[in-house]
């Protein structure tokens, strides 16, 4: 049994310690917001937070996550109201939407560490996440928007 905490909930998982976290989250715990895109840490669709870092769950063995805190897209906020989610909705970012869980989880780390990211910061943080629909321009705009929302929120 491997104990992991996902979105604040403890799970004792009976799985091959080599099984990537992605498949544990999707097939065993049953949270399907985290996506499989490449299985090789190339596309970022499977990005989750492991102790706050935007790890690619498709190459992260469950072993590494044992006893650690994991947050998936389902746990990014309670009411779809993370500044990034609000901005994503306002700017109509998703097209097919498949990569967006990963995009949001990556952007959340950027926004936590940099309250006012520049375009260069966004390039540096977000180029590990592929979007085949090509929503990059909107993701960029939405991150700027989310930074605004976050700052407004901080003032209140």
């Amino acid at each position: 049994m491997i104990n992991i905490t996902v979105n604040g909930q403890h799970h004792d998982v009976d799985a091959d310690p080599n099984m990537p976290l992605l498949w544990v989250i999707r097939d065993i715990i049953g949270l399907t917001g985290t996506k499989y895109g490449c299985g090789a840490a190339q596309c970022g669709a499977c990005t989750v937070h492991l102790n706050g870092e935007a790890v690619r769950s498709c190459v992260t063995k469950i072993n590494r996550a044992a006893g650690q805190n994991i947050v998936t897209i389902e746990g990014l906020s309670i009411n779809n109201n993370h500044p990034l989610q609000l901005a994503w909705n306002e700017m109509n970012v998703p097209q097919c939407g498949y990569c967006q869980s990963g995009q949001l989880m990556s952007a959340a780390v950027l926004l936590r560490e940099n309250l006012n990211p520049t375009d260069q910061d966004i390039d540096d943080a977000m180029s590990g996440n592929i979007c085949r629909c090509g929503t990059y321009q909107r993701i960029r705009a939405a991150i700027h928007k989310a930074a605004d929302i976050q700052r407004e929120g901080a003032k209140i």
């Binding site: 097939d27 049953g30 949270l31 399907t32 917001g33 985290t34 996506k35 499989y36 998936t72 897209i73 389902e74 990014l76 906020s77 779809n80 990034l84 989610q85 994503w88 909705n89 306002e90 109509n92 970012v93 998703p94 939407g97 498949y98 967006q100 869980s101 949001l104």
Partner: peptide
Amino acid sequence: PLQRLDTPMKTNGEAIFGLDKRLPGMLY
């Protein structure tokens, strides 16, 4: 330029894609 109805569920993991479909007793 109305907001898309499918946007909220594509920002919180709720949207069900083919790969997310689950049935009782389903094998892979």
